[in-house]
Design a protein around this nucleic acid. Structure first.
Lengths: 377, 377
DNA sequence: GGTATAGGTGAATCCTCGC
DNA sequence: AGCGAGGATTCACCTATAC
């Protein structure tokens, strides 16, 4: 029997009539996932039990006891049991994903290799492994190993042919205009962000920082997407999803975590809608054929166009093709041919003369797109 | 039939009468390992094929072709075949290790999860996973994923009860007196260190940097130890072992690699024991991209920011971009656009309001850096 | 002889749409 | 489904050449 805790009046969209959006489902994650409709979820974030094999009673050099993860939910009899559990929840998760859906799983060296192998065996398609470098990891108190200063995340598509969401431009521009790398630096979750119980202890032993989820959801979901977290804990995924205008479905077994998550989620304020807007990336911008530049008089048939260094030139013809020596065809084809290259982006390769300077013809396309924007507004 | 290439007159120690020390064994690594005496090796370093499964023909944005790893030795029919190969060589390797011996294996997300699972299944005992962060990785040319900027190493003991060598003090000393962490930063192998053939091409497609092996051997072997490398390639492990006064046994199948390794090893001069200390680069201030200020809650999405004289303003958006009138993009890009300038340092140009006063957003970056410094101290 | 510019390159599972 | 065409995409190094 499944119990459902609903924390908000949920706006249920068409076609998602049975999807318990912005809700925590209380109980076993495999049972709950199997009861949800197939192909209904955009992204899954999972922070499964790590199967830590800790010896009893780790103490710090000052003899104080380390509050280790020793909860029952992290206990498995063997790798075989852990693998069985892992494969069952990953299989249930895959059924829930839309064809272009993706999954994130976080883990440590105790379990991430089992998870990665299972993902590959279940025909997920690996996209990246990401390293969360902890700014403030727990030191290795015994001085017997390297400080365990990172955790590993796997980002995988539902299948090899899935065309997953990746907000490349957002990642790049938020990273001082260079590509976001696979190694991320964040502090662990401490201070006021860390949920405390009545006796001021941690509510959850492995609460993840919101910054981590912020980057994940920003990078691999769109506003309005549905994000499922089968190991919801105290609801970090839900909290960030709400802030970012995404929907969540949480599944959690422990009542104490559910209670803490509900309280936390009730206090979340979504960010302003206009702060969720993103720059339209070039690849999502409407297609503008070169011919329409000529039709609209932005460039005249008979004009000569050049590459940046004037090593090549071509003649713009009335039918939207260009000609250069023995070659003629599209701006792309001719750009490739004159260079002896396989391919070429004619929009950035070719330039026209304007007040003695060369400007890429892509600037004219941008003018047309701006004009289209105005007209449709 | 096994062939043996011996590059030096080897000093054979007592009890190691049959151990081909400081030698390259030419041929299949599993055959060779099975022919060596059990329990005779202190450490194994292995850089096995990664099973990359690359598609045809990746080009850079400038249309130049990427010289991919397409060697036959990296081709496997399926994960099952790769697993079978992995388990066979790891089993042979384990037989060779002394009771307190250990192994290092390096890989990428294509193979490292298979390797890690196999290690655990074969009763190796995992000690750390280590992340080699590449200072200069190849970018993601298509803008479809995060830059694959690291590789993963696993350090594992022969068994749970092995008492492995770990030179904790040496690591701490060489790391500004703080514990060495599990994330290591090194450049990839380029320049004069990279072995070139007659036509100036690379001899081996995946030559590892000596700095990586330096740290590994410094951390987990003692002078005089025997280090086996079953995928010897052009002999980085052997070169560093000799420099550090350790013995090596290399196994390699490809004659071209063996020839290059022999030539390389012949030129190695072991350094004096007292000169083994490595110089440690000063830790640079961590780069803090604007997006991480939002992720970490130092500035909220939806906040307005201004230039010093409030002539311009912009909206901070959740994805790390800012928007001002018709412009949106990075803090730098939009700073330039609103001024009509070519470039702009957004960190000093944009300000936020704090108790009625404008403070540059650069102050928030300084806060994050100070916080990270504190946390890691 | 330094300095500026140009060119090359690295373990990479690297596109999308319409016919 | 496969195919062809449009057109999107790069960072930190290194070396060589030109002044």
């Amino acid at each position: 029997m499944l119990r459902t805790a609903r924390n908000t009046a949920s706006a249920v969209a068409d076609g998602e009539a049975r999807l318990p959006i912005d809700t925590i489902l209380v109980g076993d994650c495999i049972d709950h996932m199997n009861a949800l409709p197939a192909g209904s979820v955009d992204l899954i974030f999972a922070d499964p039990p790590y199967n830590l094999q800790l010896a009893e009673g780790l103490t710090r050099p000052d003899q104080s006891k380390v509050d280790a993860v020793d909860d029952d939910w992290d206990k498995f009899e063997s790798f075989a049991h852990y693998d069985d559990f892992t494969r069952r929840w990953l299989k249930a998760a895959r059924r829930l994903l839309k064809p272009d859906g993706a999954i994130w799983v976080i883990g440590s060296y105790h379990n991430i290799f089992r998870v990665g192998t299972a993902l590959q065996d279940l025909d997920y398609w690996m996209l990246n492994d990401i390293v969360w470098r902890k700014a403030n990891p727990m030191p290795n108190f015994r001085g017997t190993r390297f400080t365990n200063a990172h955790e590993t995340l796997i980002w995988a598509a539902r299948s090899q042919k899935s065309r997953v969401t990746f907000n490349y431009e957002a990642m790049k521009l938020s990273n001082d205009d260079t590509q976001m790398r696979s190694d991320w630096l964040f502090p662990i979750c401490t201070g006021s962000e860390r949920l405390k119980d009545e006796s001021d202890g941690k509510v959850h032993p492995t609460q993840k920082p919101e910054a981590l989820l912020f980057r994940i959801l920003n990078a691999t979901t769109k506003p309005g997407d549905v994000v499922l977290d089968p190991f919801f804990g105290t609801g970090t995924t839900g909290a960030v999803a709400r802030k970012l205008g995404r929907h969540f479905i949480g599944i959690e077994r422990e009542d104490a975590y559910v209670a803490a998550a509900l309280k936390r989620l009730a206090a979340i304020k979504p960010v302003r809608a206009d702060a969720l807007e993103t720059t339209v990336p070039k690849r999502a911008a409407p297609r503008v054929p070169f011919g329409s530049l000529i039709e609209q008089g932005l460039i005249a048939a008979g004009t000569e166009i050049y590459d940046e260094r004037r090593r090549h030139s071509a003649l713009v013809r009335a039918d939207g093709s260009v000609a250069s020596g023995p070659f003629s065809g599209s701006i792309h084809r001719v750009g490739a041919l004159v260079q002896g290259a396989e391919a070429c982006n004619g929009w950035t390769f070719w330039h026209f003369e304007h007040e003695g300077l060369l400007r890429p013809i892509d600037a004219l396309r941008a003018d047309i797109r701006a004009q289209m924007q105005l007209l449709s507004a």
